[in-house]
Amino acid sequence: MESPSVSDRFLSRRRLLQLSGLSSLGLVLGGCASSMYEDIAFKTFEPLNQKVEELLLNPQKLIPNFPVSAIEPNALLINSFQGTPKIDPQAYLLKVNGDVNHSFALSLADLQKMPSTSMVIRHVCVEGWAAIVQWAGVPLRDLIALAKPKEGVKYVYFKSADGYYESWDLASSMHPQTLMVYQKNGLPLVPENGAPLRLASPVKLGYKQSKWVTEITLTNQLYPMKGYWEDQGYEWFGGL
């Protein structure tokens, strides 16, 4: 349990996800000839775009908070790829592991005892809509620091209770406003928004902000499975 190789745990679901990913991608892409060269455009320009995104990200710069009065409670739409998983908050555990010197697991009560950060930020969806939301929770960088990452750690993987998975660059993960949150708009997070614990950050697109996170794994490399939507063609960095 403590530190099985990361590739094993991500390979275990690979077959299923490949099949579901490919079939749905085929449905989406199949209908239109204009999408034929889309892949070429992506492969040619994504490395450049990602470089620019990495350069634009200032890992220390705080994104200005909005006033509480600016919160848009109804603007945050609910997206998930297969409904809302049932999680017992009492039995819930967040595991932190990977290339670290200290793997650990925390209950929701443990997490809520840690110093928390609150922010009112704009949540931006890849679809084009945005919502100003208040989130509160534990800075991810505090959890990473507790795990004492080994030399060479560059990426952070997030595994969710519903099978969703994501991976982030370390710089964005260490951003002071990248939080593992359990509160939204002043109230306890509800299951539809990712309770008991979800990722929230002003520096990444919505699909990077996993809900129902159960496991955080630090790695020194990016695996072929980068994220649920990335594996279907969305860009990996997804920076804002």
């Binding site: 989406v28 892409l29 209908g31 239109c32 204009s34 999408s35 889309e38 892949d39 455009a41 992506f42 040619t44 320009f45 994504e46 450049l48 775009n49 890849v126 679809e127 279907q232 063609g233 969305y234 860009e235």
Partner: peptide
């Protein structure tokens, strides 16, 4: 309508948009 769109899906549209922008 699809006649005036490029990319076939949201990801494809974004890929073309962020390539042609340069």
């Amino acid at each position: 309508p699809p006649l005036v769109t490029l990319g076939g899906w949201l990801g494809g549209g974004r890929h073309w948009h962020f390539a042609a922008m340069w």
